[in-house]
């Protein structure tokens, strides 16, 4: 269980996140949505202790502030929005780095399985910097998967924390990655994913946390969060809302209103 209580983040002088409280359980995919600059990455980074924050965060019942890095590494794996890498590390080497940080450090066969899971089988010898943007993003996802390969580890459920994991992927890869996240949660892990694509969020997430200007504006199942007033306020455009019987809400942006109109 991940419990976030009264989380506030200030960067510089500006409050970026204000008083966000939410709880997500293992088995759930939680999509964090909102406009550009709403504070989604900041929320994730605060949970990852990359930003100083007020409030308390508990992961599997432990106060994060008192956990050491290697304890946390066995519990949660991260794919950041922007990745960088120095030197010519290969795909196989970074996936092994993930595995060695997790609780299945010695199960070397995981590397190939994780690469296959993101469709990069046989590519382990390639320099990460020469991959295409989407391949690199999937490579880092494979690294994260290898780190928490067993969704339920010796210390309880594990967590995948993904910042826009499908932002540079093609249509098919987006679905595959979301299926991986779904499968991870169905097997007992927890997933928090910052998402821009509301349709994918509605298809794969159990709940959406919707941020507007650093506030948690809505939290709940896709049906209840994806409502016209909230969306037009957040995105400043009109949205046509539909429902597909199989996957739930489905929406299409319609007209844009310029701010100040």
């Amino acid at each position: 269980m991940l419990q976030i209580e009264n989380l506030s983040v200030r960067l510089g002088r500006r409050p970026i996140l204000q008083d966000v409280s939410l709880t997500t359980r293992a088995g759930e995919v939680l999509a964090v949505c909102g406009a550009n600059g709403a504070g989604k990455s900041t929320l994730l980074k605060a949970v990852l202790q990359e930003h100083p924050a007020q409030g308390t965060i508990r992961l599997n019942g432990r106060d994060l502030a008192s956990c050491r890095p290697h304890t946390l590494a066995a519990l949660r794996a991260v794919v950041p929005q922007d990745t960088e890498i120095a030197f010519g590390f290969t795909l196989g080497e970074i996936v092994a780095m993930g595995r060695q940080a997790g609780s299945a450090a010695h199960e070397t066969e995981i590397d190939a399985l994780a690469l296959a899971a993101v469709g990069l089988q046989g590519r382990e010898g390639e320099d990460v910097r020469t991959l295409s943007g989407g391949e690199r993003q999937r490579g880092h996802l494979a690294r994260a998967l290898a780190q928490v390969w067993h969704p339920v580890g010796p210390e309880g459920p594990c967590w995948l924390m993904l910042d826009e994991p499908v932002s540079s992927l093609d249509l098919g890869q987006q679905l595959k990655v979301m299926q991986l996240a779904r499968g991870f949660a169905d097997a007992g892990g927890g997933v928090i994913a910052v998402m821009h694509d509301l349709n994918l969020s509605a298809m794969f997430a159990d709940r959406l946390a919707f941020l507007v200007d650093g506030h948690l504006a809505a939290l709940g199942p896709p049906d209840s969060v994806l409502q016209e007033p909230l969306l037009s306020r957040a995105y400043d455009c009109h949205v046509a809302l539909n429902r597909l019987p199989a996957t739930g809400p489905w929406l299409l942006p319609q007209t844009c209103t310029l701010r100040g109109d």
Binding site: E109, A117, V118, L120, E135, L145, A187
Partner: peptide, 26 residues
């Protein structure tokens, strides 16, 4: 074989791992 052994270690992930037959990438 990779997929079937992944099923043994991580059932959730294996069920969603890409099928080679339908694999249209890269």
């Amino acid at each position: 074989t990779a997929l079937s052994s992944s099923r043994a270690t991580a059932p959730g992930q294996a069920s969603s791992a890409p099928e080679r037959g339908t694999d249209t990438h890269p």
